[in-house]
Design a binder for these strands. Sequence first.
RNA 1: GGGCGGCUAGCUCAACGGUAGAGCAGUGGCCUUUUAAGCCAUUGGUUCAGGGUUCGAAUCCCUGGCCGCCUACCA
Length: 494
Amino acid sequence: MSEQQNENGQELNTSDLRAVRLKKLGDLRASGYDPFKKNTEQAETAVAARAMLPAESHDGPEVKVAGRLMTIRLMGKASFAKIQDRSGQIQLYFKQQEIGEEAYNFFKTLDMGDIIGVEGPLFRTKTGEETVRVKKFELVTKTLRPLPEKWHGLADQEQIYRQRYLDLITSEESRKRFQMRSKIVSCIRRHLDEQGFMEVETPVLIAEAGGAAARPFITHFNALDCEFYLRIALELSLKKLLVGGFDRVYEIGRTFRNEGLDRRHNPEFTMMEVYQAYSDYKGMMKLIRGIVQRLCDEVIGTDKITRYDGTVIDLSGEWRVAKYRDLVREATGLPNWFELSVKEKYDWCVANGVEVTPKHEDFELTNAVYEKRVECNLIQPTFVTLLPAELIPLAKRCPDDPTTVEVFELCINGQEIAPAYSEQNDPLEQRRALEAQAGEEKQNIDEDFLTALEHGMPPAGGMGVGIDRLVILLTGAASIRDVILFPSMRPEKK
RNA sequence: GGGCGGCUAGCUCAACGGUAGAGCAGUGGCCUUUUAAGCCAUUGGUUCAGGGUUCGAAUCCCUGGCCGCCUACCA
């Protein structure tokens, strides 16, 4: 018999998995059992319960566990099953003789994915696995849709992102990666809090999107009837707090840039910015190395990270410090790079496949070489220092070479992980730099920020850390989409 | 934005111009320590959508949609 009758007397198509489950749900309710009203006790997690059975013992104490049914192996009058909770999985043994015929028949109607609670004593099977000998169980949530195929799991990238919950249920690797992300962020908070930093929250919706060069998302503020922007950086607000006397502040928050999306970029991403008064970019070097190495120690368990492609990144010890200009000279093989004319630099770029346009200014040509030939090759941790002043208007100039600024960009894994500056606190110099950068684009200068600087901002080191990229690095993930639970996607069309 | 690839059963995938299939899941049986349990039987399809070529299209062509990879801008 392949067809049954449902409660309306209509034929039930047994290949319509949802219809079959709806029928089971209807039958349950008809018998007075509402599986969505039930709750159950989870006295211990699956993994904790397994640990309660001593290594050499055959029998152990009673446990109460709850979770989602992940495998069912029915063998006549006895069955094995596994449930999964936030900690992992534990095996269950259902035996008709022990729970009675009625309960056993009920167990046989359960579907993969159903959420149940069970209790009973632990024992060890003949293959050595910790198992609950179920004495009582209850269905607490009936599922109407099936899980993805149990062996291959979800393979469709789109479904992994759109229905992340299915990915989390079926992929331990994915589950672990997001648990890791959470631990990374809380460890960073702990580290900064212990050093007297104060976590703050500054506006996401702002009238001027400053602090970085990027296209913002635009929105409309109805009550004020004007255009607002989603922030592209945290910098300006946080520096105002330095002026206000909170001289060790940080924020971990979402930032939005209306740009493309690829393996390294999601339009909304999590940025941490830290500002420490009476410090400078060298202080930030110590701070970031301390954070990363503590993460290795407390969260990752190793300071040798194996990337998705097998490359090993060594985060231990002191990190290489290299001057921007030396790296460019090295990458071009031209010790006299900076003595070349604009035309000669341009020609070299064209000849060597670095994409540039004739509009590029001198420093932009050099920076194109840096971005295409240097940054992506810095796999091992490297502080790149002394960048050209034109690139970074918000940093202080180096006293012994005013064409450069007191900054570093920490590059690891071929990506910029954290830029840091000795923050510019001369309001007059700051205005000049911002106006120079704005140039003909007539970008709005943030006057509020300049006013704040005129009230006096203490000398400070500041740093931005791309949390997503840091998580990519530490978890060895291949893409930013693998460390963001719900990455930006085009809406599905109906 | 540009280039390449993908879209077939609930899931993972075959079939590449000639009757749309397998494994898992489901359904009905057998099975009291299994490990992707096993065995027997069985259900399940607008082959992404729309046009076209053809006696005949999942397959070839065109248009569109979505996704992935590479590439460009930003971190």
